[in-house]
């Protein structure tokens, strides 16, 4: 369970203040978070994942208050517990599809890369239809394929929580539906908590819960 309590956050040299009184996400629940542009959706995802730290309040995942962790501990916790998908895919251009999927295992030693993980990466790629493109580079892929690689990278660590920041914003309707189906089905099978920030109202019916951030923040 994810619990946000009395969160307050402010960017340096900015008037924008993000304040959230109370918000819970049940384990295995699939939630869409909506809200108008500039309301703080990305900030919210970054706070939940521990990329940003609230000035006050607390965020806990499975009773672990992540904002009490030190920087390195928070990174370790994030890479082991949370899968992140970004709007711009953010793949490393110089890595092949397979190496992009395995990236988390190469940048933090708390994850150990072995043959099982490599096989899992191949299975994930197979599941999203990329098994024949494992040696290609991001430049050689379509937008939809790139986002599927990003999805695999987020899922390779078998996270308890999957946080997605506008994962379908750069995709056509076909690829958008494909990505959302992959995410929801995977999370349902693996009992992963899924939180998707989106402004695309056409996909809201795929989620068990929809949270309008605008109504919650002050």
């Amino acid at each position: 369970m994810i619990h946000c309590k009395d969160i307050s956050f402010k960017y340096p040299k900015s008037d924008f203040i993000f304040q959230l009184a109370d918000l819970n996400f049940e384990s295995s629940q699939q939630t869409a978070v909506i809200g108008p542009s500039g309301c703080g959706k990305t900030t919210f995802i970054h706070l939940l994942s521990g990329i940003l730290l609230p000035e006050s309040g607390s965020i806990s995942i499975d009773n672990v208050i992540i904002n009490q962790y030190k920087n390195n501990e928070r990174r370790d916790f994030r890479i082991a517990t949370i899968g992140l998908i970004f709007q711009e895919f953010e793949l490393l251009e110089y890595l092949s599809v397979l190496d992009n999927i395995l990236l988390p295992y190469r940048i933090n030693s708390i994850l150990q890369l072995d043959e099982t993980v490599k096989q899992r990466a191949k299975d994930l790629a197979d599941r999203v239809g990329l098994s024949n493109k494992l040696n290609r580079y991001p430049k050689q892929l379509s937008q939809g394929e790139r986002q599927r690689v990003a999805v695999c990278r987020a899922l390779i660590t078998q996270p308890k929580v999957l946080l997605c920041d506008e994962p379908t914003a750069n995709l056509d309707p076909e690829n958008r539906d494909n990505i959302i189906n992959i995410l929801t089905q995977y999370c349902k099978v693996q009992k992963t908590t899924l939180i998707v920030v989106t402004h695309d109202h056409d996909i809201l019916n795929k989620f068990e819960q929809v949270v309008n951030l605008k109504s919650l923040i002050s």
């Binding site: 970054h46 370790d76 992140l84 970004f86 953010e90 940048i107 030693s109 708390i110």
Partner: peptide, 20 residues
């Protein structure tokens, strides 16, 4: 910078990223 940011946000250890 963007690439380094991505690795940081995913949860890459800062010493590992610096080492790369």
């Amino acid at each position: 910078k963007g690439e380094i940011n991505t690795m940081n946000r995913i949860g890459g250890a800062s010493n590992a990223i610096q080492l790369v």
